[in-house]
């Protein structure tokens, strides 16, 4: 990153009208491993790629349960995400105590965005270096929200954040019209297929580094990892696509190659 006169703290504008510290924080989201989320009319699914520091270490947790009806996927600084997760769990519990019902996702997402925003306007703070995907099922149905360090929040039908997430996003954009009617397992498969595109080089999606969170009608938030993920990966294998360059049809290969080029510049 180049040196700049206007990036010494968050409250200083650059002459182009940018807040460089905030933009750097957004950069750390792009460095984090990929995380995707999508929803049907009945379910929301988060998928994430877990990283490990070394061969001998465990993989970093990427999907966190917040409440029975809500989970988050993270990209960026894990420590920041854990702080936010703790606060979100607290908010959900508080809501349950006061109202006796599950926290509406929209309200939590807005409050979360406000929390992000505060740091971008306060001299003594630094922005959270993490982007979150919220997947939930509440009284209005399934939801997917995306937040980022700048304090922006979007509700999405499907979205992806993190390193090489563009190819995941391309996959989602291409198939999103079929999502609303997808069954639970179908949605999980879509998540995995989108994730495969986000893997770097000749890496592979395995039961070690893959992670899925699902929540829906009559289903509490559930993590699918390790051995439980294997059947889905086997199915993916059967379809013939379990590493980055090996997508199931030609269009996709083309599309993804283009994305790869874009990422490398």
């Amino acid at each position: 990153m180049f040196r700049n006169m206007y990036d010494t703290d968050v409250t200083v504008w650059s002459p182009e009208g940018r807040l460089l510290q905030v933009e750097y924080a957004m950069e750390s989201v792009k460095q984090g491993s990929a995380c995707i989320a999508l929803r049907s009319d009945t379910h929301s699914v988060i998928g994430a790629l877990k990283r490990s520091v070394s061969e001998l270490s465990s993989h970093q947790q990427k999907i966190l349960e917040i409440d029975d009806h809500l989970g988050i996927g993270i990209a960026g600084l894990t420590a920041d995400a854990r702080t936010l997760a703790k606060w979100m769990r607290n908010e959900c519990l508080n809501h349950k105590y006061v109202y006796g019902t599950a926290m509406p996702t929209g309200r939590l997402a807005t409050d979360l965005a406000d929390r992000h925003q505060r740091t971008t306007q306060t001299y003594v703070r630094r922005p959270y270096g993490v982007g979150l995907l919220l997947a939930s099922f509440d009284k209005n149905g399934p939801h997917v929200y995306q937040t980022c360090p700048s304090g922006n929040v979007h509700e999405c039908y499907a979205t992806a954040i993190g390193a090489r997430s563009q190819s995941g996003r391309t996959y989602l954009e291409k198939h999103h019209e079929t999502f609303p009617t997808c069954a639970r397992d179908e949605l999980i498969m879509h998540a995995l297929r989108a994730l495969v595109g986000c893997i770097s080089g000749d890496g592979e999606l395995t039961s070690e580094n893959g992670s899925i969170g699902v929540v829906g009608k009559d289903e509490k938030f559930t993590l699918i990892e390790g051995a439980e993920l294997q059947p889905y990966l086997d199915r993916l294998e059967l379809e013939g696509g379990n590493n980055g360059g090996d997508a199931e049809d030609e269009d996709e290969v083309e599309a993804e190659e283009k994305e790869d080029d874009a990422m490398e510049t």
Partner: peptide, 18 residues
């Protein structure tokens, strides 16, 4: 602020009571 129709955002009696 939702992608859904916003007619289901009112609190229910149980929520008001609680």
């Amino acid at each position: 602020d939702s992608l859904y129709d916003e007619d289901n955002n009112e609190e229910c009696a149980g929520e008001v009571w609680s």
